[in-house]
Nucleic acid binder design. Structure first.
Length: 253
DNA sequence: AAAAGGAGCAACCGCAATCAC
DNA sequence: AGTGATTGCGGTTGCTCCTTT
């Protein structure tokens, strides 16, 4: 048995929203709040799919939306968050008040991708583009992001990790990029107060805390391992037992 | 001035996660 | 615990406007 369509497509409008439709949707949500999107169109007198109404409200009509150009600070924050989270646009949007996931996604694809390429970085991996190794200026790379397999297997106090920018050196002395699937994020040090970047690393909102990769922790004092919480401690995927000297480290799997 | 091409953005689609029963 | 319904997310499409030729 197939899934039933989310709405009766034969009798719904598609494409750009008219002013009248916008007004109807705004008036309805003001009067009744955001409720069941499936039944909302009918109740509001709209010939639209519920999904379409939700999208229109969230991305365009919501009163708390910040319209207009992205600031340089927002740009850098998006880049940092993308470096940590990847294409998790909704999570990234959660860190940028007044911005929507769709808006950020579009902005990424149209502006930031090019910006990173012009910096010689791969927009997806945030690593130097192919054709040689480029040492990354530590002031511009995500401060607390560890991207190396070396880092995963070394104590946190290893000084090389902070300077190599994801480059490892093998026995033959070759420098080469490793793909690391271990994402370790440390909490900000109390003394380093960068408003935007530290905000980005603040404990997540309640909604985000429900997602599997988010953990709320007391500030600066605790090492939390999701493997541990999920019962995978000492499994192959968890290397905590070999890194007991990691401090202020969250391990996301 | 007109056509072509590119950029930006709103909206759609399909899938996965979550909810409700 | 299982199943269908609903919601949310990310990728993609297509329209509009702007710039270039």
């Amino acid at each position: 048995m197939g899934r039933s369509p989310c709405c009766e497509k034969a009798h719904t409008n598609k494409g750009a929203w008219t002013k009248e439709e916008d007004q109807r949707l705004i008036a309805y949500i003001k009067a009744h709040g955001e409720g069941c999107w499936r039944t909302l169109p009918k109740a509001a007198g709209l010939l639209r799919c519920g999904k379409s109404c939700r999208l229109r409200w969230i991305n365009y009509l919501r009163p708390d939306l910040k319209r207009g150009n992205f600031t340089e600070e927002e740009d850098e924050l998006i880049i940092k968050l993308h470096g940590m989270l990847g294409n998790k646009w909704s999570l990234i949007a959660g860190r940028l008040p007044g911005r929507t996931d769709n808006e950020i996604k579009n902005y990424w694809n149209t502006h930031i991708k090019r910006k990173l390429i012009s910096r010689g970085l791969d927009p997806q991996t945030h690593r130097p583009l192919s054709g040689g190794i480029q040492l990354i200026n530590t002031s511009s790379r995500p401060q607390l992001l560890s991207m190396t397999t070396e880092a995963a297997s070394k104590p946190a106090d290893s000084t090389e990790e902070g300077q190599s920018g994801g480059i490892s050196i093998n026995e033959d002395g070759d420098r080469r990029l490793d793909l690391n699937l271990d994402l370790s994020i440390s909490l900000p040090h109390p003394s380093s107060k960068s408003s935007t970047s530290s905000e980005a690393l603040m404990p997540p909102t309640a909604a985000e805390a429900r997602t599997p990769t988010s953990v709320v922790v007391p500030p600066y004092t605790q090492t939390i391992c999701l493997c541990y919480h999920l019962g995978f401690r000492r499994s192959e995927s968890c290397s905590c037992q070999t890194n007991s000297n990691y401090q202020h480290v969250l391990r996301y799997y």
